[in-house]
Nucleic acid binder design. Structure first.
Length: 476
DNA sequence: TGAAATGTTGGGGCG
DNA sequence: ACGCCCCAACATTTC
């Protein structure tokens, strides 16, 4: 029997602070990544990121002596097969929260066991353990505030991050690894490829993640509480979401580094990390969350699917500048500011009455940080059908939100440059601007910038009526 | 991690 | 000086 082990990378594409990697320290290992198909396989923008992240991990692993093996297919067959070929009896990996991943892991483990091997899971992606954290009543959490209070207390004893191993010994009989000149297995860019410009904004991979965290701690953390809601601010947010999603940096590294830096914005930042935990907690206990409203009365909600309305939203042509700026930032960079995600999502679901799943699907395809748990939980929160959701009648007015959070129009002018010459007074409401102002700014509505796709008051009224229609339907 | 409608208050113009 | 009206400004309620 060999003491060789397989290290199966999933959403933990790093070498530092990797408990599964640490668990096999000193043993010959075969690092492997499996590209899996399935209903929630990575979308277009996420595939761009994954491509570069795997290439970076492959380089780092090769440098340390154990090239990454990249496979495509069904792990329930591939992993036991690899175990047999290498003689490994232990396969180490990070625990997953996605329903398909959990099912796959359970079945892979069963297949391994019948061959005398096992799949050993570690906490690599989260700060808390969804299967262990419970309310006083023994039930899973459904409300953020008590959840965060409990987890905050638990994390007082959080162990420090683990160092990256300096050398990794490869198994003797390793199949051919990932070659940088043979990248054809790597995820393909989307077709048509809108991801060409993403590289100007992001550096996927563990080194890029570490650089991003360091820069945020230096420039962003102190002012985080004040600036995180200003979408035009320079260091308003951490920009860590895509790095965290693929585990190029662990939440534990971010948690400890932020606490060591300390200062004004610390609590706010830690709370945001816990929102990520909460989403995964919800998905663990409510695996239907990506497809089905958590509040059952929403099953009969009178959505009004409309391809043209959805299209206008997707392409940033709704006629409401803060919405259009957000959707264009998403398209051009693979990312959107959190405040603007809420505004655009609310607009789609409430003013346009499009099903939240349509927005969820678009974000899934276009966000580089698309995360099944966070995406589903957030859309349900906005739509009002989530466990801890905003009341349905809480409807964001995109004009007022724009004026409140982007008062100087910095964000709108950046992503909707055709509006740049409008004075601040009208930058969030071009449809109300006097003709002379529009002419002065060189804008003809309907030609240079769209007229509104919906009247805000009418859209609001329609949304409230739709909500009233399902009110009290739960008992039926 | 709302917005709009409605209600209340108080200063100031005015007869 | 006084009552009346207007209407910000703020508070409350309703969706």
């Amino acid at each position: 029997m060999s003491d060789a082990a397989i290290l199966w990378f999933r959403q933990d594409l790093r070498l530092a602070d990797h408990p599964a990697l640490a668990a096999v320290a000193g043993r010959p290992i075969l690092p492997v990544y499996v590209l899996e198909d399935g209903p929630w396989a990575p979308g277009g923008a996420a595939r761009w990121w994954l491509h570069h992240s795997l290439a970076a991990l492959g380089r780092d692993l090769a440098d340390r002596g154990a090239p990454l093996l990249l496979l495509r297919g069904d792990p329930r067959r591939l992993i036991p097969d690899l175990a047999a070929r290498t003689g490994a009896t232990e396969i180490h990996a990070g625990r997953r929260t996605e329903p398909a991943g959990r099912r796959c892991d359970a079945e892979t483990h069963a297949a391994l066991e019948s061959a005398g091997a096992s799949l050993v899971l570690h906490r690599t992606a989260l700060l808390h353990q969804p299967h262990q954290v419970r309310t006083g009543a023994g039930t899973p959490y459904g409300v953020y505030t008590p959840f965060s209070r409990n987890v905050f207390a638990l994390l007082e004893g959080l162990a420090p991050p683990l160092p990256a191993p300096e050398r990794i010994t490869a198994v003797a009989s390793a199949p051919e690894g990932l070659q940088l000149d043979a990248l054809d297995l790597l995820p393909r860019p989307p077709q048509p490829d809108w991801s060409a410009g993403f590289g100007e904004h992001w550096q996927p991979g563990e080194a890029g993640a570490a650089a991003r965290l360091a820069a945020f701690l230096e420039h962003g953390l102190a002012g985080y509480a004040d600036r995180r809601n200003d979408p035009g601010a320079t260091w308003g947010t951490s920009g860590l979401s895509p790095h965290l999603h693929l585990g190029e940096i662990s939440p534990r590294q971010a948690w400890h580094a932020a606490r060591e830096t300390g200062g004004q914005g610390l609590e706010t930042f830690l709370k945001e990390l816990l929102w990520r935990e909460f989403s995964h907690h919800l998905l663990w206990h409510r695996p239907e969350m990506p497809e089905t409203p958590l509040r059952t009365e929403f099953a009969g909600f009178p959505w009004q699917p409309d391809a043209a309305q959805l299209r206008a939203w997707q392409r940033g042509r709704t006629g409401y500048p803060i919405v259009d700026a957000g959707m264009r930032q998403l398209w051009q960079t693979g990312w959107m500011h959190n405040r603007v995600r809420m505004i655009t999502a609310s607009f789609l679901v409430k003013h346009l009455l499009q099903p939240w799943q349509a927005g969820e699907a678009w974000f899934w395809d276009t966000l580089v940080d698309a995360d099944l748990a966070a995406n589903a939980a957030s859309w349900q929160w906005v739509a009002g059908c989530g466990a801890d959701a905003a009341p349905y009648f809480r409807i964001f007015n995109p004009v007022l939100q724009g004026e409140k959070f982007d008062a100087a129009g910095r964000y709108v002018r950046r992503w909707c440059p055709e509006l740049a010459a409008l004075p601040d007074r009208w930058i969030h409401r071009p449809h109300e601007a006097p003709d002379i102002v529009l002419r002065g700014a060189g804008i003809a509505l309907g030609r240079d910038y769209p007229a509104p796709v919906v009247d805000l008051a009418a859209g609001r009224g329609r949304a409230l009526a739709a909500f009233a229609a399902i009110k009290g339907a739960a008992a039926a």
